[in-house]
């Protein structure tokens, strides 16, 4: 029994030793040593855990949840308006399949939907907090500008996400977006000069005022490929600037 115990503890010790050596090897080869040391010495202001200063982090958590659930949903979603039966497109059918047939499909779709709402609400509150505490001032102007871009991207995510549902809601969103683009053409006095811009933008983003294949394919590409990639790059820039300038002070 004692021999067995010493064999087990020896195995654990050897595994621990392998882990320690692997960790040290990765740290020495990657040059992470300095970064780890800096993190160990780093101090954070006391107000950083104030709920109003956590809203950016909450937005990030929601974004990560959206990314994970989005990967799952995208593996079943079909961005096609080809009708398999009367008035039911492949896109709509694939959503019905996710909700009714795919294991945990409904739950994952529901998490995606709630996370999207949480993200929109928290990014708006985060923007208001940054405004209220004057955190956009020198030297954080660039952090603010990137944040505004992320705010616009969030609403683009929301809009394209609704379009992908291919139901009454997406029809409503596409019509609203189309009206907004045509709004450029209808601007008093100067509208005529921008008619080409509204026609071009409508053709690029919508193709036609009703949800069709062009709209679904474009929205799907924007929602799942273009925006996530650009957002990731911009987000890294946002984090870099926050790390460089630190958390802004309380009021």
């Amino acid at each position: 029994m004692a021999e067995e115990r010493s064999r087990v503890s020896g195995l654990i010790f050897r595994m621990g030793s392998i882990f320690t050596r692997s960790r040290d090897w990765i740290i020495s080869r990657s040059g992470l040593e300095e970064m780890i040391k800096e993190t160990e010495e780093k101090k954070v202001p006391k107000h950083a855990l104030n709920p109003m200063f956590c809203l950016g982090g909450v937005t990030l958590v929601a974004l990560i949840l959206l990314g994970l659930t989005g990967l799952f949903l995208d593996s079943y979603y079909e961005p096609s308006d080809v009708e398999e039966m009367t008035d039911v497109s492949r896109a709509k059918l694939s959503i019905q399949r996710i909700v009714n047939e795919v294991p945990f499909g409904f739950y994952v779709k529901s998490v995606h939907s709630w996370a999207a709402n949480v993200m929109v609400i928290t990014i708006l509150l985060h923007t208001l907090r940054v405004f209220a505490t004057g955190s956009y001032k020198n030297p954080r102007e660039l952090t603010w500008l990137i944040g505004v871009l992320l705010l616009v991207f969030t609403f683009t995510f929301l809009t394209t996400g609704y379009v992908l549902l291919d139901d009454a809601r997406s029809q409503s969103v596409v019509t609203t977006f189309s009206d907004l683009i045509y709004g450029i053409r209808d601007l008093p006095v100067i509208g005529g000069a921008f008619e080409w811009l509204s026609a071009w933008a409508n053709d690029l983003f919508i193709g036609s005022p009703i949800t069709g294949e062009g709209v679904l394919v474009r929205a799907h590409w924007i929602h799942t490929t273009a925006l996530p990639l650009v957002t990731l790059v911009i987000l890294l820039g946002h984090f870099y600037l926050i790390r460089k300038h630190g958390i802004s002070g309380p009021l």
């Binding site: 202001p45 950083a48 030297p139 630190g246």
Partner: peptide
Amino acid sequence: VEETSGNEAEDGRPFLPNHLVEELGV
């Protein structure tokens, strides 16, 4: 550009482990 160190909280709490644990809680 106003000078900022990025780690201006000399009297703040340590990032590791205090702040990290609380952030993970959030």
